[in-house]
Design a protein around this nucleic acid. Structure first.
Length: 583
RNA sequence: GCCCCUGUAGCUCAAUGGAUAGAGUAAUAGACUUCGAAUCUAUCGGUUGCGCGUUCGAGUCGCGCCGGGGGCACCA
């Protein structure tokens, strides 16, 4: 944002270091740590440490060099004051000039503020990855929100993104479902809420499989029919899979996620087996059948020890595994799209497997294998670090969570804002509930376990999405009330208060925050930023009146409110959280 | 045994190697005749698990311990 000012300062700095024979001294930028003060700071410690002529301690030398630098700088446009203190050189912005620049930039760019235009080759992000015929729970939610936000984030940073979803449409869970359906639900048609219906039948099948005598044998018989490509069973599978996909898409619509390319596990099963044959021919894989599976002994091939281990690519009975299908899928991705990078949003427990897959592809000679990246995230646990288990019935279903949160939000909305019409109230409740559910999933670092508890999930106060949404609603409320006033080009040459300065400073940071979060692939950085921005806005709101102030101040603050609103909405869009008009 | 992640306030979490480690929550006391109180203010709360090292400077980097979680041949 302040490249121009930085360039001018850099020129002064280069001149100074040349004079003092310190050409290689590093120039590092920091923010001023003082609230209500806006500008840049340069730590002089590394410069002092690099000075081999120094005879005094580094801290003292840094202070003295800083003082000399301050004395040497000429007037820099945009900088009102320069001082050396405790080894830092602090450069204070002339707020009237730069505040105007920030606010006008934001308002003219609108929803593009902070974004770079798309360029270069695409990145594929595979996320969500649910199974058909099965319920979605909060663990899936973390994947969805993290994956979705990562896509938005990369796009905002200027990278074209292909959103991919790899769906488990075959396997034991599907056979169990089909068996239960034909045995106990023959001919039933799904109601409006397909997801719920499919889930219920699955849960029932799972229960029968575990406890109902004879059911397991029945499922095994279904497996035999499946392997024999029984046309009736295949037809039923196709039909029920379609239902499941419809239900899935309803959920994605509700949650606000979309995909450019959907891969099915069934699509890559045959090519996976063909791939195994090739791997055997090339000598990479070792065939242990009939007693043992087909493996690739990566440690042996690479000469490593207990690092890559052994990857099993085909069962001893010839049936396929995760790895069997993952290999052709990766190839398909790079053949179909000209990808720069292929990102997999998968939980951390699959780290070794991902590492193995990438290594196998590298050994197969695919040059892009090194551009596969596993975006690992930790699982969602219950309080007390208890892992959710469907067997124990402790899994929190997405469906239940959404329903509970929406009800709770509706109760709050109808209390806070009873005059809203029922339909708006419903929409607001849903928007707030969605935000509240998503925020805790994304505000923690990817590598940290999220502890799910109902109290936090249903809490709409404090560090939460509703807090951020509320800030946008307040901003929009002011702008709505001022609707009849046209905002003129703002002038910030009156004495700005601390909250105003802090707010403008925070807004100006959005572009670099987006770049940093994208580079590190950590949407959580933006989630934290969004909260801080909202807090700065609420600070401003509480301490600075807008409407009814002197015309110039009112105009300037209206423009600032508008800029804050834009920045808040921009960052919420990236996080995958909607902002209501009222709440 | 080998590998990965993790340890910060009672609890949940922040903090591009940089100035006095910050929020939320809980507890207590306050602020609605005032652009929306889903908000705000104040108080309370810390040997950043322990030790050694690198560095002008370490919550952050390295090594070693300790505690927690996870992975390591036919689940995904």
């Amino acid at each position: 944002m302040f490249d121009h000012e930085k360039d001018l300062i850099r020129q002064e700095f280069d001149r100074f270091t040349a004079e003092h024979n310190l050409e290689n001294a590093p120039l590092n930028w920091r923010d001023l740590p003082f609230s209500g003060e806006w500008g840049l700071a340069i730590p002089f410690f590394p410069i002092a440490a690099a000075d081999n002529k120094r005879v005094e301690p580094v801290a003292l030398h840094a202070q003295n060099l800083g003082r000399a630098f301050v004395a040497a700088v000429s007037n820099i446009p945009g900088i009102s004051r320069v001082e050396a203190i405790k080894g830092y050189v602090n450069l204070y912005f002339s707020t009237s000039h730069l505040a105007k620049q920030v606010v006008e930039t934001v308002r003219s760019q609108g929803s593009d503020f902070g974004r770079l235009p798309l360029s270069g080759k695409a990145t594929m992000v595979e996320y969500s990855n649910p199974n058909t015929h099965k319920p979605l729970h909060v663990g899936h939610l973390r994947n969805m929100i993290l994956g979705g936000a990562t896509c938005n984030l990369l796009e905002a940073s200027g990278k074209p993104v292909v959103r991919a979803n790899y769906i488990g449409d075959i396997g034991l869970h599907v056979i169990k479902w089909l068996c239960n359906y034909e045995t106990y639900h023959q001919g039933e048609q799904p109601p409006e809420d397909k997801m719920r219906w499919m889930s219920d039948i699955y849960t029932e099948a799972d229960r029968r499989f575990a406890s109902e005598p004879g059911f397991e044998e029945k499922v095994r018989a279904y497996f035999a029919r499946w392997d024999a490509h029984d046309p009736d069973l295949l037809a039923l599978w196709e039909q029920t899979r379609a239902w499941s996909m419809e239900g899935m898409m309803q959920v994605y619509d509700l949650m606000g996620y979309r995909f450019d390319r959907i891969y099915f596990e069934s699509e890559v099963e045959d090519s996976g087996k063909a791939m195994v044959a090739e791997l055997l021919k090339s000598g990479l894989a070792v065939d242990g059948r009939p007693e043992n599976p087909v493996i690739i002994n990566l440690d042996e091939i690479l000469g490593t020890k207990e690092e890559y281990r052994v990857v099993v690519i085909l069962r001893s009975d010839g049936s396929s595994l995760y790895a069997t299908k993952e290999i052709p899928l990766a190839i398909m991705k790079f053949e179909e799209f000209d990808l720069d990078e292929s990102i997999y949003v998968i939980d951390v427990r699959q780290s070794l497997h991902m590492k193995q897959i990438a290594k196998v592809l590298e050994l197969m000679g695919y040059p892009w294998a090194t551009r596969i990246h596993h975006l690992a995230y930790e699982i969602v646990n219950l309080p007390g670090n208890v892992t959710m288990s469907s067997r124990d019935g402790t899994v929190v279903l997405l469906d239940d969570l959404v329903r509970e949160a929406t009800e709770r939000a509706l109760a709050v909305v109808s209390e806070k804002n009873p005059d809203l019409d029922p339909q708006t109230m419903q929409e607001v409740a849903r928007t707030v509930a969605m935000g509240a559910i998503k925020y805790p999933m994304i505000s923690r670092e990817n590598t940290k376990v999220v502890t799910f508890d109902w109290k936090t999930a249903l809490d709409f106060e404090g560090q939460s999405a509703p807090y951020i949404q509320y800030a946008t609603v307040r901003a929009k409320s002011i702008l709505r009330k001022a609707n009849w006033i046209k905002i003129q080009s703002p002038e910030y040459d009156y004495p700005l208060s601390t909250p105003e300065v802090n707010l403008i400073e925070k807004i100006s940071k959005l572009p670099e925050e987006i770049q940093r979060a994208a580079k590190e692939m950590k949407p959580s950085l933006l989630a934290v930023y969004a909260y801080e921005l909202a807090r700065n806005f609420n600070d401003f709101y509480n301490q600075c009146h807008v409407l009814g102030e002197a015309e110039k101040v009112q105009n300037a603050r209206l423009a600032l409110v508008d800029a804050a609103r834009i920045a808040l909405e921009d960052v919420l869009v990236i996080l995958g959280i909607k902002a209501p008009q009222v709440m």
